[in-house]
Computed example of a mutant assay.
Amino acid sequence: MKIAFDGKRFFNNSSGLGNYSRDLVRILGTYFPENQYVLFNKNQSEKGKEILNLPNVSFLETSKGNFSRQFKMGKDAQQINADIFHGLSGELPLKWTEKPIKKIVTIHDLIFMRFPQYYSFFDRKIHFWKFKKAAEQADLIIAISEQTKQDIIHYLKVPESKIRVIYQGCHQSFKENQSAQYLISIKEKFNLPERFILNVGTIEERKNLLNIVKAIQGTEIPLVVIGKKTKYYKKVQNFIDKNALQRQVLFLENVSMEELAAIYKLADIFVYPSFFEGFGIPIIEALFSKTPVITSNLSCLPEAGGEDSVYINPHHFEDIKAKILFLWNNESERNRRAAKSLEFVQKFNDKEIGKNLQSVYQEVMSK
């Protein structure tokens, strides 16, 4: 099969949708070398350069012109006789020729529908129109969790028979056993505490960092935070300043993927009390890193965390505090949960994801 991809996120996004796109193409290129994989975009970047070195993965420049991603990319894929066009971030091109081509779109979440207060009226309308249009055009839709599947059915009015759930994985770095010497070097580079809890993700209201900070107030437990700052960061920082927690909360920046993987391994506990996620890749990263997880009992997070993660009500910082103290003071329980969770998280390994993707491609070609 020849499969064309919308490469915008692959080349332009450093995290999130970019990681999903790069991991998907890397996994397919590695485990199913008999296919050809073509990434369309206006230009290349350094991101994913090693994936383009795979013999069955290539880049093609989208035809020039205004709105070329919407109006030219699909036709370009048909021009090279692609069997399938896969939109990796909730969108598909709007214009096609009569030439046959199957269309698949991955939808990650519909957070803009569930939490409209986080989006402008204009953004909500545009997102909904693009997602609805792509869902109508697609021969099959990939949802990244059962939660997202239910949201697609509810908000986009798509029949369940048209949706397949394929979970995401995470970067290879989190699955590798980094040397003790490297871990020590990372601890020294970032001046990390001897023991600490970790939170990773964009510092925005939905991710609920403030309730972690409130939870550690009155304890001596250090918190390390890694994530892009938004306006919400000021709210968190104001609480830290007001309550003299500056020495207890450490914000890190300019952390590479390999360094991030090491920091996960150095942490005692990973805490992720998000109010809603499409999937929650940081949880998978933590579980592969053998770090026990405390996360919310909402949305898809139990899907990602499995039976041996610890679940909290993210609206109540007292609950978060109690669960942090429970694990912080119980090394044997941390080790037990980490070991069991490592068994569980194997369902998100590359080979399993690749097999499921190939199965969807074969299914759509057989229709």
Rank of each mutant, 00 (worst) to 15 (best):
S341K: 12
F344Y: 15
S332Q: 14
F326M: 14
R336F: 11
E307Q: 03
K351N: 13
R336L: 12
Y311S: 08
N330W: 04
Q346W: 01
F326G: 03
L327D: 12
K347G: 04
D308H: 15
E352W: 00
V345F: 13
G306E: 09
G305T: 07
V345M: 05
K321Y: 00
D350Y: 04
S341C: 09
P314F: 11
E333I: 08
W328C: 13
N335H: 05
I353Y: 05
D350P: 00
L342T: 00
N335R: 10
H316C: 03
K347E: 05
A304N: 10
W328N: 12
E318V: 02
V345P: 10
V345L: 02
F317K: 02
E303M: 11
K351G: 12
I320T: 01
K351H: 15
A322S: 11
K321G: 00
E333G: 06
K323Q: 13
D350W: 11
D308F: 15
L325A: 06
V310W: 04
D319P: 04
L325M: 11
I312S: 01
E343D: 11
L342H: 13
D308G: 08
F326D: 15
N313I: 03
N335A: 12
F348E: 06
K351S: 15
R336H: 10
R337P: 00
H316T: 01
D350I: 06
N329Q: 13
I320N: 00
P314Q: 09
H316R: 04
L325E: 15
S341I: 07
K323L: 11
P314Y: 08
P314C: 13
S341F: 14
I312R: 02
L327Y: 10
E352H: 02
N330H: 01
K340N: 14
S341M: 09
N335W: 04
H316K: 10
N329F: 12
A322F: 10
S309F: 06
K340Q: 15
D308V: 08
E303K: 08
E331A: 07
V345I: 13
D308L: 13
N313L: 09
E307I: 02
R337Q: 06
